[in-house]
Every structure is written in C-alpha cells, then in structure tokens.
Design a protein around this nucleic acid. Structure first.
Length: 501
RNA sequence: GUCCCCGUCGUCUAGCUCGGCCUAGGACAUCGCCCUUUCACGGCGGUAACACGGGUUCAAAUCCCGUCGGGGACGCCA
C-alpha cells in the first residue's frame, strides 16, 4: 500500500503556495528562558516571508511542558523579538481572531481533537508507564535496534480499557500509525521528502497529565490558526510525516512546509550553549546592534543571489524569498558578525552614537556639549566596532590620560622630546587660531627650525595628550580637545616623562 | 544502530533547476603592497574550494549510481 499525498489535496509546487492570497505564518517557541539565535533566524524568516507576501506573522507560545516552564521567559522572548524589530501581528498581548496564542490555554481544544481521533480509531489509550517504556528503550538500545512502541495497549480489549479508565489508571493517547506506508510531502527547501511508516512509532499525542505533545498541539493549532506555511528548523523534518498523517486523520489540508538548515557550532554540531553565546540577549549585552545580528542570521542560510551583504530590515523584506534558502547547515561564525556590526555601527547617524556615548559617560557627559561629542565621534567613527569602543578607544576625549602606553614611550619618546614639546607649548600659547591647519603649519616650522622630522614632534605630542600611540589625526585631535586641554596635558606629561628617553 | 537530510576556499556563499559563458565569482578572516605622523578607514594584490570513485556526454561543480564524511531525528522535550 502506498499512501500517496503528493498529488492529492496537497499542492506540490511552491508556486501554488506562494500565490496563496492569505499568507499566515507563525514563530512558535517554547518559553524555556531566552530567545536562541537559531530561534531568531526562524522568527526572522517567518516574519520576512509574511511581510514580503503581505501576510500575517503570528507568535504562539508552546508551553505544554510544565516541567520546563521558566518564570518570565515569555516576556523575555517578546522583548528580544521586539529588540530585533520582529513585531508580530497576532500573539500574546496582541489578540487576533484565532486566540488564545498560548497553548496551555487551549487544552480543551486538544482534548476534543484527541477524542475525535479515539472515536475514529486513529488513536488509542496507552497505559504503559514511563518506567516500562524506559526499560524497553534500554534493552532495545543494547540490541542496537531502533525503538518503536510495541503497541501493547493497542490490543487491549475495550472492557479492560474502560475499567482502567474508571479505576483512574493514568494513560496517554497515542496516534495509530499505519504499517508500511510511504508518507510523502513537499518541502519548499528540499523538494519531495518521503519516509516509510515502518520507521515511525505510535507517537504520544496527549500526555498523562492531559497536556498535548508538540506534535498534536502544533498540528491542531496550525490548522485552527489557518497557518499557510510552516517555516521551522530542520530538526522537525523527520517528524513531519507524523504531522502529515494527523492532518489526514482530521481531514485537513496541511500547510506548506519549509525546513530551515540548522545553525551550527564551529565543530558542525547543532548550535549549543556549551560552545559560546546562543542567546540573543547575550549579543545585545555585548554591544551588537540588532540590525547587525539580524543581517547576519539572515545571511546564514539565505542570500539575495548577488553580491550585496549589507541589509537593513526593509531591504531584507524586499529581497527575501524562500526559494533561495539553502539546504546545508551554517556555522555561526563571529568574525563576519563583527564586520557587519562595524558596517552598521559606522553608518549610524551622529546623534544616535552621541546618545549612546552620553549613556556611558558619568553624569551623561554633562560637561560636554553635543557639538564637542559630535566632533569626537567624527574622529572615532572609523575606528570602532562596538558602541562601547567610543569610550574604550576615545577615553582621552573625556579625561586627561593617567598613564602612558609603555610601548609608545619606548618607541616614540626620545631624549630631546621633552625640550621640543616645551618649545611647541610656548608657541601654542601665543598662536592666534588653535586649528588643525594652523597647528600643522606650526609643527612644520618648528620641525624644520629644530632640524627634526615632523613625526619626531607628532608622536610624542600624541603620547602626551592621549596617553596612546595610535588614534585620529593629531592636528584634528588637538583642535577638538582645545588649547587649554592640550597645553595642560603636555605640561603634565613633561613632568611625568622628563626623566625618560 | 535505524531512518531522514546535507556535502563548492578556514567561514558564509554564487554557480547546480535549463550540462559548455567556470583556467569556479563575491564577502569575512589571513598574508603582502599602497595611502599615511600613528591606529584605523580605504585601494590594490596573494594564499585558498567543486569530498571520493564510477557512469552518461563531444563536454559535468552542474545529470545518474555508489562510497565516504557530517548533521538531525529516533522522549509522556520542544
């Protein structure tokens, strides 16, 4: 027997799906603590797909495992999604016509559907204890066979089932999977996939605590919420036949499926906490811009087909297409993320960088004018990778140096440096315009009158006023810092460094 | 172990549907050079890949088969 679903009630070609006037997609995380970057990518693709096709993006909370509930996880999830700019149209706190959007609030619906399956003989009660199942699993593991429930409870006489239920014996409800049947479905990413039910066991649909398993809840909700496309991680690929079977049992048309390639650790295993940060909030805390993180995960498994790599959200919506999603898993590699972060950061308007800077500065940088801060940002812009670099790399814009880079001293502070700087200072005191251009002229004049190279004056000056050996162009820097600050710092450096060199 | 999915530079990938335009393109990283008072930015250039073996064909990264490798699933988790 062949259970052919390919040409029946399920449209096979992607075009059939893409022309669906009513695109409804969902991101359906379980609230176990935080938003995983893999989840972010799944949510993003769903959102992009919805926006691209003027459809609806839904957030559904899959909280059917009471043992893994984490306090505040839903709020955290929503916050991370919002930070990433992924706003949903229906979901918790945003009611739509298909709510509630939290599975623990939909128990009666699952129960009703389970009863229907029981009545139509597509499911049966199972009284086996988890201990028995566990023992079976162990012995089968030894013999290196694959585990399948042995259907002990399928053969139970009706009278016995009734009696056990009356006696209050806990039970689960299992779906009845047909023998030796090929289930085929079309995946938008992988084309046709088929699997024989010989390798599928009678999946539990309702747990003994009355909650549904993912498989049950996911199918019921996707149908009732009229989800048109299920876009989810590849880890679900091998259980999709079970879902297809359930749609069949219910007489429902399945949605289109698109299984996204996994995000991988550097060793190519499924991305996990052990090998680095996986929570969106971790990246946020480190100073990654949401634009950069979103841009980065978008490119992990998808590309626009040309050389463009820097995208903002609207660009992604415009270019995204599910057909261009790759099949192979992608390593979550920080190097490119860092580069993207720099690109997005450096493209930021000055005002936004200034506000961040104020947040990092004591007293919100009350001592500094917007104008001053903007000048500092102009000089720092091309040198930063993270917002906090504004402070880390540019501390000298906000306070006098307290130490001098030893390597800089060794390389640049010569025996005569102090004397030369003293000459420069006296000139600076009297010069009319303390500007970049004017200072450059002075340095050139004094260098030639002293018979030294320009850089023999420039480097010690930089060291004296910034404490560092590198940074923005010296004359621009001096102009921004201003005459008083520059002279004060050089004098202090002279006092500290006069014995050196 | 079983089933499913996948396999182009170190990494992300283009090219594969409709074989020839591919002595395989781009980006990140890396190395070198240039620009330059420094650090960066920027520019230029280099190293670097079609997993392997068969087959089909005048022609294969592209089609077919096999092998190997990697991953995922195999939970009263999702």
């Amino acid at each position: 027997m062949r259970f052919e679903l390919r040409n029946g009630n399920i449209p096979t070609m992607p075009e059939d799906r893409l022309s669906n006037p009513e695109v409804r997609v969902r991101f359906a995380p379980s609230p176990t603590g935080y938003l995983h970057v893999g989840g972010l990518r799944t949510a993003l693709y769903n959102c992009l797909f919805a926006r691209k096709h003027h459809g609806v993006f839904i957030l559904r909370i899959e909280d059917t495992d009471r043992t893994r509930l984490v306090e505040g996880a839903v709020e955290n999830l929503i916050q991370s999604l919002r930070w990433a700019g992924l706003d949903y149209d229906e979901g918790p706190g945003k009611d739509g016509p298909y709510g509630p959007y939290v599975q623990s609030q939909r128990l009666a619906i699952y129960r009703e559907r389970a009863d229907y399956l029981l009545q139509t003989d597509h499911a049966y009660r199972c009284f086996c204890t988890s201990e028995r199942l566990e023992a079976m699993r162990k012995s089968i593991e030894k013999s290196k066979q694959s585990f399948k429930y042995d259907r002990t409870c399928l053969g139970l006489p009706e009278s016995e089932v009734v009696k056990k239920v009356q006696d209050g014996v806990p039970y689960t409800i299992r779906m009845r999977v047909p023998d030796h049947t090929t289930v085929a479905f079309c995946d938008l990413v992988r084309q046709d996939v088929e699997i024989n039910t010989a390798n599928i066991d009678d999946q539990i649909l309702i747990k003994s605590d009355g909650y549904p398993t993912y498989h049950m809840a996911n199918v019921v909700d996707d149908h009732l919420m009229q989800i048109s496309h299920v876009i989810r991680g590849e880890e679900w690929l091998s259980s999709t036949p079970k879902h297809v079977l359930l749609y069949r049992y219910f007489g429902w048309q399945p949605p289109a499926f698109a299984h996204l390639p996994l995000l991988l650790n550097p060793d190519r295993s499924k991305l996990s906490k052990r090998q680095g940060d996986v929570a969106v909030e971790d990246y946020r805390a480190k100073g990654y811009l949401s634009e950069a993180l979103v841009n980065f995960v978008a490119l992990l498994g998808w590309n626009p087909g040309d050389d463009r790599e820097i995208f903002d959200r609207s660009g992604l919506v415009q270019e995204f297409s599910i057909e261009r999603v790759n099949k192979a898993g992608a390593i979550f590699n920080l190097e490119k993320l860092n580069w993207l972060n720099e690109q997005h950061l450096r493209a930021k308007p000055s005002g936004e960088l200034r506000e961040w800077l104020r947040e990092m500065l004591p007293d919100s940088g009350a001592a500094f004018s917007d104008d001053y801060l903007d000048h500092a940002i102009r000089l720092l812009r091309e040198r930063i990778s993270f917002p906090q670099d504004l402070l880390r790399l540019g501390s000298y814009f906000f306070q006098d140096p307290t130490t001098y880079d030893p390597e800089g001293i060794r390389k640049r502070w010569k025996e005569d440096s102090a004397a030369w700087l003293a000459t420069l200072v006296s000139k600076m005191e009297t010069v009319e315009a303390f500007t970049s251009e004017g200072l450059e002229v002075i340095y050139k004049e004094i260098a030639s009158s002293l018979g030294v190279s320009n850089s023999e004056l420039i480097h010690p000056t930089r060291l004296a006023i910034s404490g560092l050996a590198g940074g923005p162009g010296l004359f621009e820097l001096m102009e921004v810092l201003g005459r008083d600050t520059v002279i004060r710092r050089i004098r202090r450096a002279l006092a500290v460094l006069s014995g050196v060199g």
